[in-house]
């Protein structure tokens, strides 16, 4: 398991200062830690695509953004990713929970769980699967993309972070 607190510290060390998103139980520990931390702010968004917009504004105003979301929100975001982030070259670090991974989850998550990676690939969104062992390397890869002004997604499987639900 990755500690939410230390992962947030890693993100802060890499310069991320603006956090927003729509909750997922797999990210509940991460979001609670963001809300509890004295030196960061987490802005609750009403929809994932609106959070993409917020992050784009933050980036252009000079602040590196992180978007936390469940993969159910990926469909809402595809238009924003393809007609905003990718064509203007506006980077955002997306932390996306991978519900339905391996076909074992509630029925509403099964199809998205199966096509999650393919959707990211076909839309040109670079991503990596975050694990306890690879987070330092994966963050380096993410920062390379962010510096090249491209979005990057970290897929989070169940059990990686502490869940408070």
């Amino acid at each position: 398991m990755l500690s939410s607190k230390s992962f947030i510290a890693e993100l802060q060390n890499n310069g991320f200062k603006f956090f927003t998103g729509v909750p997922c139980s797999l990210l509940s520990g991460l979001i609670s830690s963001l809300e509890d931390a004295p030196d960061v702010s987490y802005l609750p968004a009403v929809r994932e695509d609106a959070a993409v917009g917020l992050c784009a504004g933050a980036y252009m105003a000079g602040t590196l953004p992180v978007l936390l979301m469940q993969n159910s929100g990926l469909g809402y975001c595809l238009n924003a990713f393809t007609s905003l982030n990718l064509i203007y070259k506006i980077p955002t670090l997306v932390i996306m929970s991978w519900r339905g991974c391996g076909g074992k989850d509630a029925p509403e998550h099964i199809i998205m769980g199966e096509i999650n990676e393919d959707l990211l690939k076909t839309s040109g969104m670079d991503y990596a699967i975050l694990t306890e062992d690879n987070y330092a390397d994966v963050l380096k890869q993410a920062m390379k993309n962010i510096k090249a002004e491209l979005p990057f997604t970290l897929l989070v499987k169940k059990g990686l972070f502490d869940e408070r639900h």
Binding site: A45, D49, G57, M60, T63, A80
Partner: peptide, 16 residues
């Protein structure tokens, strides 16, 4: 593109 998002982009700029 991204119809509907001018308002959230504007909010992001204003906050930062």
């Amino acid at each position: 593109g991204s119809m509907g998002l001018a308002s959230s982009i504007g909010l992001g700029v204003a906050l930062c």
